[in-house]
């Protein structure tokens, strides 16, 4: 492993072990995408072969078929303690992105997660966001406190000097833990290659297109690409000038959409 990847991994493992020591009921969020699968792999490294807490998958009912298949296969192989979180009421009411992406993401993702957290009383959620994905995520802390209403008070984030992370306090609050905040997209792919981490086949090009970032099927578009192997993806990323989330429609509906989504508790 390169010294860069080793130092990224060392820091991530340190953060994961801090969270495991400091929280009573942590859980990790898994979208089945490359970043959260990398975090699961890092958990298995930090805890010597197992993920010692529940793995939450938010099911909007609108994910790609390949994501469900990949999820179920890996959940079996890695012996994951899965929790599938769905907002059944919203799904039954027929909500969809056609009526507004902010409302749809908030109902099917944020509200589903909120319900899941309160049911299971989780005090920490481990999430695979990275600073280089989006300007708003670039402002995140390693530990990010959320209030009982799930809100992210981005105007009043805690002092986080050195590795002195500050957790949320008070009933009904939880802390978002971000173990790969300091990684780049390229680092993730180099790590996947090095560690031979399984990835969803949707990332690899078919007929001149591939998915660079995975979300719900209606709001995720593939990019033009012929990168059909991990090596080709790495080469592509070294040259690209396109943003990783270019194919994710919910960020782009209107100005500061990502900030609004995240202030409400979106990941």
């Amino acid at each position: 492993m390169s010294s860069r990847l080793r130092s990224l991994e060392n820091r991530s493992i340190y953060i994961l072990r801090e969270a495991y020591a400091e929280f009573d009921r942590p859980a990790v969020l898994w979208s089945t995408g490359k970043d959260s699968t990398t975090v699961l792999h890092l958990c298995r490294k930090a805890f010597f072969g197992e993920v010692p807490f529940p793995v939450i998958h938010i099911d909007t009912g609108r994910k790609f078929r390949e994501m469900y298949e990949f999820r179920d296969r890996l959940a079996r192989e890695w012996n994951l303690n899965m929790i599938i979180a769905r907002n059944e009421d919203a799904l039954n009411s027929g909500i969809g992105p056609e009526k507004g992406k902010l409302a749809c993401c908030t109902a099917l993702k944020t509200q589903a997660l909120l319900k899941c957290i309160s049911e299971h009383d989780f005090d920490a959620l481990i999430l695979a966001i990275r600073r280089d994905e989006h300007g708003v995520r670039a402002k995140e802390r390693v530990y990010s406190p959320r209030d009982r209403n799930f809100r992210w008070d981005y105007r009043d984030q805690p002092l986080e000097v050195w590795d002195y992370f500050q957790r949320a306090t008070g009933e009904g609050t939880h802390t978002r833990v971000h173990p790969i905040l300091h990684w780049r997209e390229l680092d993730v792919w180099e790590f996947i290659k090095n560690e031979q981490i399984p990835v969803n086949p949707l990332y690899f090009a078919r007929n001149g297109k591939r998915y660079r970032s995975l979300g719900c099927e209606p709001c995720t578009s593939p990019i033009e690409s012929n990168a059909a192997t991990i090596d080709e993806i790495i080469e592509e990323l070294k040259r690209t000038k396109t943003a990783e989330r270019a194919g994710r429609a919910q960020d782009k509906e209107k100005a500061f959409m990502m900030m609004k989504l995240r202030a409400l508790g979106y990941m």
Binding site: R4, A138, K139, Y154, R184, A255, M259, K260
Partner: peptide, 27 residues
């Protein structure tokens, strides 16, 4: 290019720290 918060754009000032990665001769 650095403002990610609506309040930052509105108030024309930086509110919170931002960390950006940039590849020059090194990272």
């Amino acid at each position: 290019f650095l403002d990610a918060l609506e309040d930052e754009m509105r108030e024309e000032r930086t509110i919170d720290t931002t960390a950006l990665m940039f590849k020059g001769k090194r990272l």
